Computed example of a mutant assay.
Amino acid sequence: MRNFKKALFAPLLLAGFVSMAQRPAAQELKNPIVEAIVKEANDNSQLEKLAHELMDGIGPRLVGTPEMQQAGVWALGKYKDWGIAARNEKWGEWKGWQRGVSHIDMTYPRAKSLEGMQLAWSPGTNGKTVNAEVIVLPYMEDSIAFAKWLPAAKGKIVLTSMNQPTGRPDYNWEEFGTKESVEKMKKDRDMLTAAWAKRISNTGYNSRTLPAALEKAGAVAVVTSNWSRGFGVNKIFGAYTKNIPSVDIALEDYGLLYRLAEAGGKPRMSLKIDSKNLPPADAFNIVAEMKGTEKPNEYVMLSAHFDSWDGGTGATDNGTGTIVMMEAMRILKKVYPNPKRTI
């Protein structure tokens, strides 16, 4: 009988646990505020509209540009429309600059429009068209030999990036190539990358200081190709020259120029870059605030960096983060306008 009681007690105990575990789910009370937030986000999302206005309409938000200033005014206007207190907090200044139209062409040994764009904050050509021979940064044994070569850069357009052995991303090689061909490509690329790094270091400069040295020596432009290892995509960052244009050329067109120059073909390029320097511009943060009603000195913070590089629209870095944060504030103001803590 004692064993029977034990055997009977175990299933009853298990059934009790199951019943207790199931009861909260069945009796769970839905939070009406959370439900309202989810409903507003699903049924009345403003994300697409915000994305269109910011990324399509205003575009990239490079610090120091009129577009960055315009984006700040836009954000303040949105918060005002939503009834949220917001302010522009200045924290310094940055060099003013505005991108213009670029014409980048190969003029010899044949005419070909090239896929490329000026780097951020690059000087322009002052309304003129620069036409010059293209040369590749040479390999020198050391900085002394490079210093002796530098005068040869005068009047030239200098290529300062390695010529990529392939324009296909690794995943594409791995999908369609044999194991042996993929391994050989990667080995060859690693060797070329190491050799180019040595070519740069032997000059006595690095990728940041070399353009200024070429500029001082009289080069008329510096050309790079900062490939992202994706199909047809380069990274567009900042220029390190102060008076001559810095231009990035897409992988295939860069390879063409490089091969022609290396073979002694003396290719020529023409550049007309209409960017212009502007007076120093305010650097700032946009701060919006919903004051807490019970614990105003305790904070819940949402943040996203507002600025971007200007090679694209600045969508993924970080326009999407910006509009999601703003949309969250809009929804909270509509559904939960009097939070306990300051948001």
Rank of each mutant, 00 (worst) to 15 (best):
S181V: 11
V182G: 02
E183D: 13
R189P: 01
D190L: 13
A194W: 02
W196G: 05
W196R: 06
W196Q: 05
K198M: 13
K198S: 13
R199A: 07
S201L: 12
N202T: 12
N202S: 15
N202Q: 13
G204I: 05
Y205S: 10
Y205F: 14
Y205R: 11
Y205Q: 14
R208P: 01
R208K: 10
T209V: 03
T209Q: 09
T209L: 06
T209A: 01
P211L: 03
P211G: 03
P211D: 03
L214Q: 07
L214S: 10
A217I: 08
A217K: 10
A219Y: 06
V220N: 01
V220W: 02
V222N: 04
V223W: 03
V223T: 02
V223G: 04
V223E: 01
T224I: 08
S225H: 03
W227Q: 08
W227K: 07
S228G: 12
S228D: 11
R229L: 07
R229C: 09
F231K: 10
F231R: 15
G232I: 06
K235Y: 11
F237H: 10
A239N: 06
Y240S: 14
K242N: 15
N243G: 12
N243T: 12
P245M: 05
P245H: 02
S246V: 01
D248K: 02
D248F: 07
D248P: 01
D248R: 01
I249P: 10
I249W: 11
A250D: 14
L251M: 11
L251G: 08
E252F: 14
E252C: 06
D253Q: 04
Y254P: 01
L257W: 00
Y258I: 05
Y258M: 03
R259T: 13
L260P: 01
L260R: 00
A261E: 00
A261R: 00
A261N: 00
A261L: 02
E262R: 09
A263Q: 12
A263E: 12
A263R: 09
K266H: 14
P267V: 02
P267S: 00
L271Y: 00
L271V: 04
K272N: 10
K272F: 06
K272D: 07
D274L: 12
S275V: 10
K276D: 04
K276V: 12
K276Y: 02
K276L: 08
N277R: 15
L278W: 07
A281I: 07
D282S: 15
A283I: 08
F284P: 12
F284G: 09
F284L: 08
